[in-house]
Each structure stands twice: as C-alpha cells, then as structure tokens.
C-alpha cells in the first residue's frame, strides 16, 4: 500500500486508519518473542512505521511489566479468527466483526476521537461531480475498503439494502482496496467514481495530506457509530494480563509515552464503554443479513 516515498506522517495515517476500521491486508509483524501478552492489530503496518509500533509496545510493556507481542496478520478475518480462538489476549478490531462475534468477545476499551467514542462513514466522490446522494451513484465503479469493514462496506451496503438494493447490481463494478487511504486514492485518481471510507481516516488524511483529498468531496456522512474497539475473548486467555492491559489503555493519556502514541494516532484516549454503543452497527448488520 501507499507509495515508496510515503513519509512517516502518511504511514501513521494509514496505520491509524487501518487500526481502527477493520481493514486487513497486513504483513506479519511480530516484534517480541511469543511470551507474555499477545496483542493483535489488523492494520497494515508499513515497515517505515516502526516508530508508532515501538512506542505502543514500549508503553504497554513498561506499564504492564510483561513482554508484549504485537501480532499483525494480512486480513482482518485472520485476526478475528485468532482472537475468537483465543490465540490472542486482545485485539483492535472493527465494530462490524465485534457485533458479528458478539457472543465470543468482550469489550476492553473504545478509543475517544474528538472526545467521543464515535465516528462516521463517508461516501466520497470526485470533487466536481454533481451527484447529491447515494442514489445518484447508480452504475458507478465503487471502491470499498474491506468486506469486514463497517464504515468501508457495511454502512453503504445497509443503505442500499434499505432501498432493497445490492452493491453488485446497483454499482457497475466494485472492488476492495483493503485500506481506507486506498479508497481515497482510488477516488482521487479516478480509478473509482465513488468510495466508502472511514470518516476518521478521511478527516485525518485531509488534515495531514490535503493534496490527496483535495480532489474529492464527502457526498454523504452516516450517523455517528461506535468507534472500532479493543476486544478480548469472552473467556480471557490470562485474566490478570487482560486487567493490566485494560488499565494500561484507560490510563494511556496520563503517561508521556502513551500521550505520544495517542498524538500520533490523533486520538484523545481510551474509555470503557457499554456494548450498546455498537447497537447501530448491529442493526445494520441485521438489516444486511435480512436482505440476503
């Protein structure tokens, strides 16, 4: 993903975006021996983004006092499978798989963005395109982020289902970019006429890499939905380690190293939230499931 000349800033954005929006297509990246805490990450960690990984790992190890392994896999599905089968102590996943595997998982913490544990899904199109809503995009080449992504797939899929439509018949052609930043690139370059993208990633990219988003515009923003959470198996692999992890995440904003990592992610901190935060996503998943 990304370009060879990608700088640390954009690498961070990609990291953040993928971390929080359940997109996959990662390269395996294991930093410490497989002892102690195993923490799963779905995003694409670029080789140049070792600084963020290093900070996160160092913070967790120091605060928890145990070795921490950061586990990445190519797709979100792989991480979800590892998590559900209890091969991971915890993982940063998306709201969609969280509600999909609700019975097997428990909520650890939810990131706070702009003070709230919420984000939106954006429908983006070319800046000069005169479309007014989703219904004007019929026949488009449409870019999705990931089939397991809430903001990059489920939201648009559910919106079509409300009209009794399916993406493969409504759009002329669809493809997955396996990254929200890639959705922005696809729309900006003209490869896709429209795309479904994580609103948090889009806004951060617009802030740090305006040249990428300048040729696109937000056609439609969804209602606020639960931010991609940190989840753990319902039966913890090691209850003590999970408690220590929860504590470390919730106190991240109080530690300088934790604040540095949060700053890089453009997040305010982590909060303990009720599972009902994800009811909106669950409703969309149910609608889609019902529409077949």
């Amino acid at each position: 993903m990304g370009t060879g000349a990608l700088n640390r800033r954009s690498a961070m954005i990609a990291t953040a975006g993928l971390l929080l929006s359940c997109s996959g297509f990662a390269r395996a990246h294991e930093i410490v021996p497989e002892r102690g805490l195993r923490f799963g990450l779905t995003p694409v960690f670029l080789t140049s983004d070792l600084e963020l990984l290093g900070r996160l790992q160092a913070y967790l190890q120091r605060t928890m006092g145990v070795p921490v392994s950061l586990i990445t896999r190519r797709t979100y599905q792989e991480i979800t499978a590892l998590l559900v089968s209890r091969q991971l102590d915890a993982a940063w996943i998306c709201g969609y798989p969280f509600v999909a595997h609700r019975r097997d998982l428990q909520l650890v913490a939810v990131p706070l963005w702009r003070g709230k544990p919420l984000y939106q899904s954006y429908l983006i199109v070319d800046r000069d395109r005169p479309a007014e809503g989703l219904m004007d995009l019929r026949g488009d080449i449409h870019a999705f982020s990931d089939p397991d992504s809430n903001s990059g797939f489920l939201v648009t899929r559910a919106a079509l289902a409300e009209h009794g439509l399916r993406p493969d018949t409504f759009f002329g052609r669809t493809f997955y970019t396996y990254g929200h930043r890639n959705v922005i690139r696809a729309v900006a370059s003209g490869l896709a006429a429209s795309g479904s993208v994580d609103g948090y990633v889009y806004d951060v990219v617009a802030e740090l890499e305006p040249s990428l988003t300048v040729s696109t515009r937000i056609l439609h923003a969804s209602e606020p939905l639960g931010f991609p959470p940190i989840a753990a198996p319902r039966v913890p692999v090691d209850a003590g380690r999970l408690t220590a992890l929860t504590d470390a995440l919730l106190r991240m904003g109080e530690d300088p190293e934790g604040r540095a990592a949060l700053r890089m992610l453009r997040l305010d901190g982590f909060a303990a939230e009720d599972v009902s935060l994800f009811d909106g996503i669950a409703a969309k998943a149910a609608l889609v499931a019902a529409s077949g």
């Binding site: 080449i141 052609r173 370059s189 003209g190 490869l191 896709a192």
Partner: peptide, 8 residues
C-alpha cells in the same frame, strides 16, 4: 490514468 482508460 483511470480517467482516460476506465476500469472495464
């Protein structure tokens, strides 16, 4: 240049 040679 996808605008010149669209997918498909």
């Amino acid at each position: 240049n996808p605008r010149q040679h669209p997918v498909g």
